[in-house]
C-alpha cells in the first residue's frame, strides 16, 4: 500500500502544480517558490508530517517536501541551540539535496554539452 499512496499523493501534488501552470499566469519558477514556502508553512502547522507518515515519498519527493525538511531542520536546531538555530537549521537540513545537485551539476557540465532539441 505504501507505493499506491506514494503514487496517488505525489501525483496529485503534481496535478496541483499543473493546474497552476495551465490556469494561472504564474511561471514555473514562481510556482516552485510558492510550493517550497507552502511546504514550510504546512510543516509548521503539523500537516505535512502526517502526510509523510501516510504517503511516504509521495510527500517527501515533491518540492513541498523540501520545505518540510527546512521546517524540521529549524525546529531541531532551535530546540538544540536556541537563537543560532534560527539561522543554521534550514540550510543544515537541506544541505544534502543542494550539495548533491551542485556536485552532479558540475560533473554533468564537465562531461556533456548542451543539446539541440530538434
Amino acid at each position: 500500500m505504501n507505493y499506491v499512496w506514494a503514487f496517488v499523493v505525489g501525483g496529485l501534488i503534481c496535478v496541483a502544480g499543473q493546474l497552476l501552470i495551465d490556469l494561472t499566469k504564474l511561471t514555473p519558477a514562481r510556482i516552485l517558490v510558492i510550493f517550497v514556502v507552502s511546504g514550510v508553512v504546512l510543516s509548521a502547522i503539523g500537516v505535512w508530517e502526517k502526510l509523510v507518515d501516510f504517503a511516504g515519498a509521495g510527500a517527501t519527493v515533491p518540492i513541498l517536501g523540501f520545505g518540510h525538511i527546512l521546517a524540521q531542520g529549524v525546529e531541531k536546531a532551535v530546540a538544540q541551540s536556541g537563537f543560532v538555530g534560527i539561522f543554521t537549521g534550514g540550510m543544515t537540513a537541506c544541505s544534502g539535496g543542494v550539495t548533491a545537485s551542485l556536485m552532479f551539476a558540475l560533473i554533468a557540465s564537465a562531461l556533456t554539452k548542451s543539446k539541440s532539441q530538434s
Partner: peptide, 28 residues
C-alpha cells in the same frame, strides 16, 4: 509531463544541472 517533472525533487536538480551544462561554454 509538465509539472510531473517540475514539482518532484528531480525538477529542482534539472533546474541546477541544465544551466550548468548550458553555460559551460562560458567557463567553469
Amino acid at each position: 509531463a509538465g509539472a510531473g517533472t517540475l514539482v518532484p525533487i528531480t525538477g529542482f536538480a534539472n533546474a541546477v544541472v541544465s544551466p550548468a551544462i548550458e553555460f559551460s561554454t562560458e567557463g567553469f
